[in-house]
Design a protein around this nucleic acid. Sequence first.
DNA 1: AGGTATTCACATGAAACTATTCTCTGAGTTAGG
DNA 2: TAACTCAGAGAATAGTTTCATGTGAATACCTGT
Length: 401
Amino acid sequence: MENLDKIFNSFTSNNFFKNKSVLQSNYSPDTIPHRNEQVEAVASILAPSLRGEKASNLFVYGKTGTGKTLSVQYVGNKIKERVNEMGKDYLKIIYLNCKLKKVADTEYRILAELIHELGGSVPATGLPTDQVYNKFVELIDSKKQIILIILDEIDQAVEKISDGFLYNLTRLNSGLKNAQITLVGISNSLTFMDNIDPRVRSSLGEEEIVFPPYNALQLQDILHERANSAFGEKALDEGVIAKCAAFAAREHGDARRALDLLRVAGELAEREGSKKVSLKHIDTANDKIERDKMLYVIENEPKQFQLVLKAITELDGNSEEGGIFTGDVYNKYEEVCGKTGNDVLTQRRVSDILAEFDMLGIINTRVISKGRQGRTREIKLMLAPNIKVKAQEILNSALDL
DNA sequence: AGGTATTCACATGAAACTATTCTCTGAGTTAGG
DNA sequence: TAACTCAGAGAATAGTTTCATGTGAATACCTGT
């Protein structure tokens, strides 16, 4: 029991976290370093809504962790504040993350969510979509107002739904007498606009802003700023921030990643009861993040995928020299299916599953020709030994072995 | 020896099938007028 | 009578199978020296 005391003590006495929430991903800071240009651009595009006029639709691109969402929300809040100061209420801002499953991954659900945000309500199912549209129109057109709809991760939604829905949204304005809608789309994919209905492209992309990735120096600035309010004095070793920034810069300048890294490193140091975050903690944190991400993916993979992965992990290491090939995996996979009483998929499908694992980075494959022995994929399992052990445990319990 | 043709063991594509989830429609139900 | 609810028909979707075609190089088979 004295162990418990030790754990609790390290949390109460050694509080070098002044305010951990600053490092969490949903925290929104007062300033956004190195994004002045973009923030100003967003602001000037959306500014007309201050006067109750319709602003141009805006489309924002950029990789994850480049501050897109943050900047847009920031500007949105400022505008909203300003409008409230002026004592008006003709502006409504709705933020919707299209990636959230079960909330916004069908046209119907997105609309339902929008209506919900506006204070209306619709049944979870049962109504035809155009009626939901009508309800939505009715709701917003009841008075003169500007509706600013921010659709985050819009590429995810379109992938699932099709762009017809965006077309409908952009066309909605022409049927409105009082209200006007401004759409702000945020996309992680730079090529998103390329395969979209031209009509949608022209109306949604009236204005476009690209968010470039941060470089290592910029990441350092960001980290410094947040670290100052997150940690107590002298809680970080020399070079900790530089190292975090360097790690994240390697991953296309993902600031979120950098902050996660710093936070996890801090948590590790805290748990250890050490007074400072050292470089070593960063490495451990990096491993841990990587590991947790991998294991999370593996755990949530569909059963058949897990069966295939199980087959690969069994072959990995103990297989005779020369690597693992598709045929080997398939045989092993059949065996595993037999043991666990699962249906056996065709080789064709397993081939696709392998390709998907490749995409996820769980395995690495290369198509090689072995001459008379045919053509196949050479497969390498990309899990570090300690992760592999853990992964096998997860697979075994998921497959009741 | 040098050149061609075969052949293997899958890769890669397209289309069709299937089970599940969504959407829509109309009948039945409810409640207010 | 209008609004709501719900079951079932029909449409969309994801996961998978079937069928078809493609592929790189080791190996087999020629061919002429």
